[in-house]
Amino acid sequence: MFEIVEREEMAQGTIISNWVRAPKIAQKAKPGQFVILRANETGERIPLTMADTDPERGLINVIYAVVGKSTALFKTLKVGDSYLDVIGPLGQPTHLEKVGKVVCVGGGTGIAVLHPITRGLKQLGNHVIAIIGARTKDLLILEDKMRAASHELHICTDDGTYGHKGFVTDVLKKVLTENKDIGLAVCIGPVPMMKFCSQMTKEFGVKTLVSLNPIMLDGTGMCGCCRVQVGGRMQFACVDGPEFDGHAVDFDELTLRLRSYLPEEKLSYDRFKASLGQGCSCKS
């Protein structure tokens, strides 16, 4: 059992941060790696890239958006509750190196995955420009942490309620135009964001890393569920990734495969919401 020792609701309760007791994983994990979590005996195996670790306290940090039954079930877990299974660290760690000047672009919960990579790049002596975005101000997460992990922080919201009004790609274009010496871009967020960021960095000839989140099952390369096309070759995100060359990834295929279970996911989530409604713990 893997106990939740700290819990925080972010972005008006749509994003949850958990610090989970998993000492063995905390010892080994490196930025870019993920874990698979399962809440209970009937639960799905859900892959989440770690947002941080605290090896001394034996804790790992996962930050997830509530998007369906399984994450809604995770949200019901309070401090002192436990995940039944946490498996990891899985996947390849980010290859962090000094390249000079880098740009790190994050959207939504992707910012949580981007943060340890950004911090690592800064620690290695890179000049780090960060761009983070959300639909609206209240949904933006980890602004302070990202500010501390970078030298320059740009913020965008789709609706203009905070920072630049528009998409991260607008700011990315400006940054790339003004900084011809950028040697690496790291873009992590929703698939369309990663796709358009990668298209833009390709125009500027800047090497780009993206972190993919296909549907997974075992996470050890056994089932092939997370297969993605990278440079025309089949790769498994769980063992070959989750990070890949953004210029080589077939994002359209990834988008398609992420829709594999839309009807089932809706059915499951609706059923769960109904069950929560009946089993309301409110005593009024």
Binding site: C223, G224, Q229, L256, R257
Partner: peptide, 16 residues
């Protein structure tokens, strides 16, 4: 066409 929704490896189909 192995990326289409509904194409499984036996490992995935049976593990699920």
């Amino acid at each position: 066409g192995e990326h289409y929704i509904g194409v499984y490896s036996a490992n995935e189909y049976l593990t699920r």
